[in-house]
């Protein structure tokens, strides 16, 4: 715990994290100030956080862990378990990024839109952030070269934010003659960004903005079950890469 605290202090003071929190706060505040309709504001906010939070989590988590390799090695020459070192670093990154979101997104939401929808947006963004911080950690443990690792991270982001939806649409278009309910639900569950989008839209109950996926989700589950499932799947999405990263870290050569 002490190691986590010391590293956390270092991460929180990191310029990138401070700027991230400030950027989020500026953005959220201006969206609330300039958008009259509450639902519209939430949707615009979500559209932005769905792009920004994964990118920041991926890039920051991987680059911070890459830059810490020397220090990790020094800690690993001390008589302590590798596991402890791993959780201290990954935990510090995850907590610091979540704190940036809670401050930058959380405070304006509390001030301007303290509602279940606002809180859900906050929760979903933090979860999404954990998913991508975990993915970034996995990349940094798996790929030795920093430049290649950062490239991989950008490809992951690009794929999950843009390419995936395109491919999904293409697939649905090709098989439009068939019943598509189940494939759509599965495809959505496989992408954490889609998952958190659907999660919020289910809560807001605005089918016009939900798109096909949301509508299907809604039909498949009632709101409560669908959302619970979305939240659980997001947690699974965070747990898988962090477990893989941990396993790699325990046998990694430094």
């Amino acid at each position: 715990m002490l190691m986590l605290r010391h590293i956390l202090i270092d991460v929180i003071k990191n310029r990138m994290v401070v700027m991230y929190a400030a950027f989020l706060m500026l953005l959220t505040t201006s969206v609330f100030m300039f958008t009259e309709h509450e639902a519209k504001a939430m949707v615009s906010l979500q559209n932005i956080t769905l792009l920004v939070a994964p990118l920041m989590a991926l890039v920051f988590s991987s680059s911070y862990l890459y830059n810490s390799r020397d220090f990790m090695a020094l800690l690993l020459t001390q008589p302590i378990g590798r596991q402890r070192v791993f959780w201290a670093f990954v935990g510090a990154v995850a907590v610091a990024l979540s704190m940036a979101i809670l401050v930058g997104l959380g405070i304006p939401v509390l001030v301007f839109n303290f509602s279940p929808t606002g809180l859900l947006l906050l929760l979903l963004t933090v979860l999404l952030n954990l998913v991508f911080a975990a993915l970034g950690a996995w990349v940094s443990v798996s790929i030795a070269d920093k430049a290649r690792g950062l490239g991989a991270v950008l490809i992951i982001w690009f794929f999950l934010t843009l390419v995936y939806d395109g491919l999904a649409l293409l697939l649905l278009y090709m098989f439009q003659e068939y019943p598509l309910m189940t494939p759509i639900v599965v495809l959505t569950s496989l992408n954490p960004i889609d998952l958190s989008r659907v999660g919020l839209l289910l809560q807001m109950d605005i089918s016009a903005l939900m798109g096909f996926t949301g509508a299907v989700y809604k039909k498949y589950f009632n709101s409560g079950l669908g959302m619970a499932l979305a939240l659980i799947l997001l947690m699974v999405w965070a747990a898988i890469p962090v477990t893989l990263a941990r396993r790699k870290f325990l046998v990694k050569d430094f």
Binding site: L2, M3, H6, I7, D10, K13, N14, L74
Partner: peptide, 21 residues
């Protein structure tokens, strides 16, 4: 010559190392 956490104080580093042992 390696990289240490940028924003960690020297005194904190020694404290951390002492506590690990």
């Amino acid at each position: 010559i390696g990289q240490y956490p940028e924003n960690m104080k020297v005194s904190a580093l020694f404290k951390l190392m002492l506590s690990l042992r």
